[in-house]
Design a protein around this nucleic acid. Structure first.
Lengths: 256, 256
DNA sequence: CGAGAGGTTGAGGATCCTCAACAGCCGTGG
DNA sequence: CCACGGCTGTTGAGGATCCTCAACCTCTCG
């Protein structure tokens, strides 16, 4: 039973049928072995040869998380690292009075636990249904010790994250609400494009509050800016996401 | 001829005499060999044994930069990496209309160029006179290739930077002006303490504008907040810095 | 059908920014 | 030696942006 066509383009990158359970939603990607993995080419695993990949595969569990499930809390002992294969995660820090800053959204291919440190530096929730390769942290570290080129790759990934974080500091510190939302959409579009997803319709599995807590705004401001962009025909609001009607205009709003 | 005692505690971490030239201001730290280096214990070099240290020493130039001198611009080809031994740097990104976000201040012991990538991801200026160990990037990478434990150390440093960046996102996105300034002072105090500097008087070689561009504020707001903290006797304004009168109160203002 | 979650929109207000004036410091140069 | 300009910092008045509070809507799910 397919739904109406309006929200079709706004589906998650998984692109599977719409059953609620994570296993179903993410298709077989949660249980496949590495050689058939959809996100291998964009993941840290891309640097491994077939033998190494097999060894790594032997270390991994295929874990799934339902929407809104918490993977771990900031300060928890870090017993696992993950490679996301399907779905969307939010990583966030809380202040003692409940204020929240989402430091990033993770998409398929992204790695959780780059720091390899003993405790998680942020909390992580599944936003929609998520599938991931789960590695015991100790075992993963031991594996890395024997593969310097994997360490090199992890280092590249970490410094890339650092660059992304610094760009986000510019956004948080020096940009207007409209620029923030536009830049967020442009960035998300680029990431989805690199994953091979359609570039015209952006799925937004996160809520307005999530976006607000990522952009240093309130949910009302996010909603108002998106409404304004829709009024100006830069985007079209569709269930579950946004259709980009004027990419050039959006990029101009998002670029400094 | 020593100046009045008021500004004595607010000197830079170099603690040398006040001649203008970088070599003089930073004392011998800019030309010393590694085994007498003041910041070795807190630098990435700390993981090297004496032989390795000697090999690395052979790769390094001792570079000095005068106050306000630019080391490199965002997008420049990255031909060198640096280890700061004395003085303060600002790392920043610019938007096309001139808005600036300072992504970090570097103190002695900090490393510039962790990403080892081909181009610099931000611009860097000396704030006061600076001394640093300069390494040819290619040569440094070749050295790292032969020393996996140094790569591991660089990775640790990079992920530490990432954590710092994420904490700064919380500050930029979710904290008030007063909290921002207080947190900045607390953080700077902690860093200086780890370097063995006095914890009661914080030198502030950067301008109000620098602080504002780091905290996502205007220079006027920074000035007003500091004045307010001084009125409340949390800090005392001294030439070149601040004396912390009520550390507990400052930490409460700075903590979430 | 009712409850709850998520989203939109409006009115009013707080925070922080903009613009402006002025003070202190310092090196330069008459 | 002192006047001057430039740079930095402080303070005030007024205003823009964004937040807070609130009402209402749609959609989903039990």
């Amino acid at each position: 039973m397919e739904n109406s066509s309006a929200d079709e383009g706004a589906r998650s990158a998984c692109g599977a049928a719409a059953e609620p359970a994570a296993e179903a939603r993410c298709g077989r990607s949660g249980t496949e072995s590495c050689d058939r993995c959809r996100v291998r080419a964009v993941s840290v695993c891309a640097c491994l040869d077939p033998d190494e990949l097999e060894a790594l595969d032997a270390l991994s569990d295929k874990a799934t998380f339902e929407a809104k499930q918490t993977l771990f809390i900031q300060g928890d002992e870090a017993d696992a690292v993950y490679n996301v294969t399907c779905g969307t995660l939010r990583l966030y820090k809380l202040l003692s009075d409940g204020r929240r800053q989402i430091v990033g959204f993770l998409l398929p291919g992204d790695f959780v636990g780059l720091s390899l440190s003993e405790r998680y530096g942020y909390s992580a929730d599944a936003i929609d249904d998520v599938a991931a390769c789960r590695f015991d942290r100790e075992a993963f570290i031991a594996f890395v010790e024997r593969k310097p080129h994997l360490l090199r790759r992890l280092h590249e990934a970490a410094t890339h994250e650092l660059t992304v974080a610094q760009d986000h500091m510019v956004l948080l510190g020096r940009r207007s609400a409209e620029e923030k939302v536009a830049a967020f959409l442009v960035t998300l579009r680029r990431r989805l494009t690199r994953l091979g997803a359609s570039a015209v319709t952006i799925p937004l599995p996160m809520t307005r509050l999530d976006m607000a807590d990522h952009l240093g705004l309130t949910l009302e401001t996010v909603s108002r800016v998106i409404s304004k962009l829709a009024r100006q025909k830069v985007v079209l609001m569709v269930p579950g996401g946004l259709r980009i009607m004027d990419p050039a205009r959006l990029e101009r709003l998002g670029e400094g």
